[in-house]
Amino acid sequence: MENIKSLNKWANAHTYFSVDLIRIGLGVFLFIKAVSFITNTQYLTELLSPLDKYGGGMILFHYIAAAHIVGGIMIFFGLLTRWAIISQLPILLGAVMINFMGEMHSQNLLLSIIVLIICFFFLFYGSGKNSADYYFKMQK
């Protein structure tokens, strides 16, 4: 718990509006990606096709869509950002690995790696000063 408090203190002392814009952009991207997956279910089914032999395709589909929608909104507002990022990590790691298991889509791989790196950054950095977490913390 002390590690998280020290990370929050450091992040709040070194916060920049551009970093908050990247966090907001990440949240919007994840939300739009979820809407894209929901409206075009065939695309997500094709992406998950290398995992067909392992089963649980519909469970994965619903987890990915729900985690991206809820996580995207939470990251956008900066509400429980680290928890939202933690829920995104298995999806993003799977998105990177699925390119090596099935057909390689270099554009999807690059996008997945970039989003994964940004998520790891915000996992340690937190949500920053311009966030709901900081606002609620100051209300005490």
Results as ranks from 00 to 15, higher is better:
Leu123Lys: 09
Leu30Lys: 05
Phe100Tyr: 15
Asp52Leu: 12
Ile38Met: 12
Phe100Trp: 09
Ile118Asp: 04
Cys119Met: 06
Leu48Pro: 03
Ala95Trp: 03
Thr45Asn: 13
Ile59Trp: 09
Leu80Asn: 12
Leu44Glu: 03
Phe120Ala: 13
Gly57Ala: 12
Gly56Arg: 02
Ala66Asn: 07
Gly27Ile: 00
Lys137Glu: 13
Ile118Thr: 10
Leu51Ile: 00
His62Cys: 14
Gln88Cys: 10
Phe121Met: 10
Phe122Leu: 04
Val70Tyr: 00
Lys129Arg: 14
Ile98Arg: 04
Gly126Ser: 05
Ile86Ser: 10
Ile117Val: 15
Met138Ala: 15
Gly56Glu: 03
Ile69Asn: 01
Ala132Ile: 15
Ile118Phe: 04
Gly94Thr: 07
Ile64Lys: 01
Cys119Asn: 06
Tyr63Phe: 15
Phe29Gly: 08
Leu47Lys: 05
Ala132Gln: 10
His68Tyr: 14
Asn130Trp: 15
Leu116Ala: 08
Phe121Trp: 11
Ile38Trp: 11
Ile59Lys: 06
Phe31Pro: 01
Gly57Phe: 03
Arg82Asn: 10
Gly27Trp: 02
Phe37Pro: 01
Thr81Leu: 08
Leu123Gly: 06
Val28Tyr: 00
Ile64Arg: 02
Phe121Cys: 06
Gln88Met: 12
Phe122Glu: 00
Ile98Asn: 05
Arg82Gly: 08
Ser87Thr: 13
Leu60Phe: 10
Gly102Met: 06
Ile69Gly: 00
Ala132Tyr: 11
Gly71Gln: 00
Met101Phe: 14
Ala67Leu: 06
Ser106Tyr: 14
Ile32Leu: 15
Ala34Pro: 03
Asn99Pro: 04
Trp83Pro: 03
Gly128Phe: 03
Phe124Ile: 14
Leu47Asp: 01
Val28Gln: 00
Gly71Trp: 02
Tyr43Phe: 12
Phe100Asn: 08
Ala66Pro: 03
Ile85Glu: 00
Ile38Arg: 08
Phe31Asn: 02
Phe37Val: 08
Pro90Met: 09
Lys53Glu: 13
Thr45Cys: 05
Gly56Val: 08
Leu30Gly: 02
Thr41Val: 12
Val28Gly: 07
Asn40Thr: 03
Thr45Tyr: 10
Phe136Glu: 11
Gly102Pro: 05
Gly56Cys: 05
Phe61Glu: 06
Gly27Thr: 01
Leu89Tyr: 07
Val28Phe: 05
Gly56Trp: 06
His62Thr: 14
Ile73Val: 15
Glu46Asp: 13
Ser36Arg: 10
Tyr54Trp: 13
Gln139Asn: 13
Ala34Trp: 02
Leu89Gln: 08
Gly57Ile: 13
Ser49Ile: 07
Ala34Tyr: 00
Thr45Gly: 12
Gln42Phe: 11
Phe77Cys: 10
Leu26Gly: 01
Ile118Val: 14
Tyr63Gly: 04
Lys33His: 15
Met97Leu: 15
Ala34Gln: 04
